[in-house]
């Protein structure tokens, strides 16, 4: 069986600046992976590269067997910020757009998700609070029957009730064979959800470990592990 994601020797420069360098990452199908790193570490860029929203990289990115950008777009469901839509657009219109563009968009799943997340899709985008907007983005992203889901900081700046609902919806609606990468710079609340963690630091991936292996080998939590990598208490050689 091929990997859910295989990145080899990925380097990405933009405006003469190196954003990512020598990134190698392999993820097996069915995993929930936390992508951790400080703001500006390159988490979003990496996701955009995987989803074929950023171009001009060197190296290879394969999602399943798909290496070409067009194919990857079909296999990957990326939580987009909905910036292309006018503020007065109704949520139902955004849904119609998604259903037209993505062949794997499931109307039933969408309905289940907005019901569970308590969303009213007759509202306009501009009327949504930050938490509600984030819930809507999650509903759209999970409504696709993709093989790889990329959730870019779905929990930043939202209240704890919305966060709990989003976490539950991820557990409920992720198909066993589907793979999910969730980026965040704060990990405590989602730690029990993660099979593995990937840490980005200094423009590359500095650690990739199973969460329970971290707890077993180091006797520390995922958050403490992540912090100690950033503080240099755990060196790359220790891994």
């Amino acid at each position: 069986m091929s990997n859910a994601l295989a990145i080899t020797n990925l380097t990405y420069r933009k405006n003469y600046q190196t954003i990512l360098t020598d990134v190698n990452l392999t993820i097996t199908p069915g995993k929930v992976v936390g992508l951790l790193g400080e703001n500006g570490a390159g988490k979003t860029t990496l996701m955009r590269l995987i989803a074929d929203l950023a171009k001009g990289y060197r190296g290879t990115i394969a999602v399943g067997d798909a290496t070409a950008g067009v194919q990857r777009r079909i296999a990957v469901s990326f939580s987009e910020a909905l910036q292309g839509f006018r503020p007065t657009t109704k949520l139902s219109a955004v849904r119609d757009f998604y259903a037209r563009v993505y062949g794997d968009f499931s109307a039933k799943k969408y309905l289940d998700l907005i019901t569970f997340l308590q969303l009213d899709d007759d509202l306009e985008l501009a009327k949504l609070s930050k938490g509600t907007r984030e819930k809507f983005i999650i509903a759209l992203t999970l409504s696709r029957e993709a093989t790889l889901y990329l959730l870019d900081e779905p929990f930043s700046g939202i209240d704890s009730m919305s966060r709990k609902r989003i976490i539950s919806s991820i557990i409920k609606w992720k198909r066993p064979e589907a793979t999910m990468i969730i980026s965040d710079h704060y990990v405590t609340e989602i730690a029990p959800l993660l099979d593995e963690v990937v840490v980005i630091k200094d423009r590359t991936i500095c650690a990739h470990k199973s969460s329970d292996a971290i707890r077993q080998e180091f006797g520390i939590g995922v958050e403490a592990f992540y912090e100690s990598l950033y503080e240099g208490a755990i060196q790359h050689d220790d891994l």
Partner: peptide
């Protein structure tokens, strides 16, 4: 399995 995962807010694989 999935019900337990939802109740305990943990990953299905775990």
């Amino acid at each position: 399995v999935r019900q337990l995962a939802v109740d305990l807010t943990v990953n299905v694989n775990t």
